[in-house]
């Protein structure tokens, strides 16, 4: 693998880590399999693409993407808590609806190119760090998100959120409206996912309506790889594991590319990685049985 390939993988890994942290909140903290992610990722990218191509502030584009993503997550949560639709199906419904919404946001076009638009990755073209501008921007953003999330999960509200995924009965007995914590959790999760989508759009200089496909699996892959390699406790390490898991996942993919894997096989490889990681428990016990 070339230095450039590694650098690119690390950059992508850090940007996608924001998405993986979002997936971590829904899948791990709230214990809810939320498939909205595939749609909200593109929503964030679409919103950012429209803002940036119109000459808007690229940071404002991230915030706008976060807001719209949160809204999508809130809709998923309301479908579940207010209308009694299963969480999995609620997410699928919103994901599906978002496909049309995203096309509308993008003005009916399936993709938008951002060749000469402002981006958070080309703010400092000159100066000391000009060569690594993208990497430094990515590090700064993930640092801010990471710190925010780490502190948030240790507030009273953060405690309520974490307990909701653990034990809803206990949460309600403690006077917490578990429907509200679920809503806040899914909104935050999809907000982060959309912000990640917005960054990817700026990084790649284009947004495509199909770019979110399988995003939830990639996020989950990052979360699981992080857990396996870097451990699950305490909280700080757990969050760090998600970020490092995302980088590691991108490095694995980049390595596979360097071995000649066609880009079109990416989804297949992602699915296999997650399937293997998720079945490791069953495989382990099967192996142990064989030995006996």
């Amino acid at each position: 693998m070339t230095y450039l390939a590694i650098l690119g993988a690390v950059e992508l890994g850090l940007i996608y880590a924001v998405m993986a942290l979002g997936v971590f909140i829904s899948f791990r903290t709230l214990n809810t399999p939320d498939l909205t992610v595939d749609g909200s990722f593109v929503l964030g990218a679409a919103v950012a693409a429209v803002i940036c191509s119109g000459g808007g502030n690229p940071f404002a584009a991230l915030l706008a993407a976060f807001a719209f993503g949160s809204l999508a997550g809130a809709v998923t949560s309301l479908l579940h808590t207010k209308l009694g639709i299963q969480p999995l199906l609620s997410g699928i419904l919103v994901m599906l609806a978002l496909y049309s919404v995203n096309l509308r946001v993008m003005g009916g076009a399936p993709n938008i190119h951002l060749m000469n638009s402002p981006s958070i990755f080309n703010l400092w073209q000159a100066g000391l760090f000009a060569g690594n501008a993208k990497l430094i921007t990515a590090i700064l953003v993930i640092l801010i998100v990471f710190l925010f999330l780490y502190l948030f999960l240790q507030t009273r509200l953060g405690f309520a959120l974490r307990a909701t995924g653990d034990n809803e009965i206990m949460v309600r007995a403690a006077g917490i409206n578990s429907n509200a914590t679920k809503l806040i959790g899914l909104a935050l999760s999809n907000g982060l996912v959309a912000a990640s989508g917005a960054m990817i759009a700026q990084y790649q200089s284009y947004a495509d309506v199909g770019m979110g496909m399988g995003m939830v699996v990639m996020g989950l892959a990052s979360v699981i790889i992080g857990e396996v390699v870097f451990g699950v406790k305490p909280l700080l390490r757990r969050l760090l594991a998600v970020v490092l898991g995302s980088v590691l996942y991108r490095l694995i993919i980049a390595f596979a590319f360097s071995l000649g894997m066609p880009a079109t096989d990416l989804k297949l490889v992602s699915a296999v990685i997650v399937a293997v990681a998720l079945s490791s428990g069953a495989l382990k016990s099967a192996v142990l049985k064989q030995k006996q």
């Binding site: 009273r156 509200l157 405690f159 974490r162 307990a163 653990d166 034990n167 206990m170 006077g175 917490i176």
Partner: peptide, 29 residues
């Protein structure tokens, strides 16, 4: 197993119960 959040610490569980009648915002947990 129903009375506590298993993946949280003893003090975190107590804090959740202790803040029963208080607002749950961004104060330290």
């Amino acid at each position: 197993s129903l009375g506590t959040a298993y993946d949280m610490t003893i003090e975190e569980n107590l804090a959740i119960a202790y803040h029963k009648n208080k607002s749950r915002g961004l104060q330290p947990g």
